[in-house]
């Protein structure tokens, strides 16, 4: 249930620190989510995303720092926090031997609903999450996408003011992913405040109003997707050549035209570079490549993706996990 006073800021965290033994999982994270907006917490495996979610959902106590969810202090008033949140963890936490309906009914009862209310709410969510046909089958027969939907439905049983979704699409096939995005989209349209963690830049771009990029337990950048892309600046000009032998020539030409060192991808015979003058740079590059006798198979000009942002911020790609437990 939404709390009686709706604060402007639904979630606030100040200087959260958490160590696991000698590993510093969180190294002073601050965050703030205005009510009714979606914050995307973006980072590779082991960046500290799950730890942050676990602290905000009262599952874990930080070593230092403070946090408030829906106006309640997670350290001093965890029960009030639990009444205000819905959590959908990294692994769909559904009981495989219970049917979809029974899973939701159980969660409703555990939120303190009486039997008729819990049943009615379970039915409502079953149909909203398009699980009608599977409602009375044990969840072990569900596809990955259906389990995810059921788990998300579980997080929404009590119409929580704040919903925390930890990597909601990890491990899903593309169809399951699109399905889940749609559900999250609806959730946001209904006015919930959402914290979403993801290692997919595309996902943060699609779903989040604000993005916080974290790596090694620190916030390394924040802003809207557009602001983050703007930080990298310019546009990327990308050339694919016919023969690997032509890569060096192409790279030299792009160095002349572009505003930085070009990236060379030998495997895909691709060279790309940041350019300042958009299509003018493109035409200039093609003219020079033609003069050098380089066969250009493909050419494109694109704004930087969040992948580019991540790469330029951290020096490594977003999905290049460190294999640390999250």
């Amino acid at each position: 249930m939404p709390t009686t006073t709706v604060p402007d800021v639904a979630v606030r965290a100040e200087a959260l620190v958490k160590n696991y033994g000698s590993t510093r999982a969180l190294d002073g994270i601050d965050l703030e989510i205005p009510t009714g907006t979606v914050l995307g917490l973006l980072g590779p495996n082991g960046a500290g995303k799950t730890t942050a979610v676990r602290i905000l959902t009262t599952l874990l106590r930080p070593d230092s720092g403070r946090a408030w969810v829906a106006g309640h202090d997670v350290l001093t008033d965890p029960d009030a926090v639990r009444r205000s949140i819905g959590l959908s963890g990294q692994y769909a936490a559904v009981d495989e031997n219970l049917t979809g309906f029974e899973n939701l009914y159980m969660v409703g009862r555990l939120y303190g609903m009486n039997k008729p209310t819990a049943k009615a709410r379970a039915r409502e969510l079953i149909s909203r999450f398009r699980l009608d046909d599977a409602a009375d089958r044990p969840a072990k027969g569900y596809s990955g996408g259906m389990r995810r939907r059921l788990d998300l439905a579980g997080a929404l049983v009590a119409e929580p003011a704040v919903v925390l979704l930890d990597e909601p699409t990890t491990g899903l096939d593309p169809r399951g992913r699109l399905d889940t995005w749609e559900v999250i989209g609806e959730l946001v349209a209904d006015g919930a405040t959402v914290l979403l963690t993801t290692q997919y830049l595309e996902e943060a771009d699609q779903l989040a109003d604000t993005i916080l990029v974290i790596d090694h337990g620190r916030v390394i950048a924040s802003g809207t997707a557009d602001q983050l892309k703007g930080e990298v600046g310019g546009e990327w000009l990308e050339i694919v050549v016919a023969d690997t032998a032509e890569l060096a020539t192409a790279a030299r030409v792009l160095t002349e035209v572009g505003s930085g060192e070009p990236d060379i991808d030998e495997q895909h015979k691709r060279v790309q570079v940041l350019v300042d003058a958009g299509t003018k740079s493109l035409i200039e590059a093609l003219r020079r490549l033609d003069a050098q006798g380089v066969t250009v198979l493909d050419v494109s000009l694109h704004r930087p993706t969040l992948d580019d942002v991540f790469l330029s911020l951290t020096g490594h790609a977003a999905e290049d996990g460190k294999g640390e437990p999250t």
């Binding site: 959902t57 692994y91 769909a92 555990l110 939120y111 303190g112």
Partner: peptide, 17 residues
């Protein structure tokens, strides 16, 4: 292991239950 205890611990239910 299956994360079900996480779900339970995030609910406003008794710690004994």
């Amino acid at each position: 292991q299956k994360g079900i205890i996480d779900r339970f611990r995030s609910l406003p239910m008794s710690r004994l239950a």
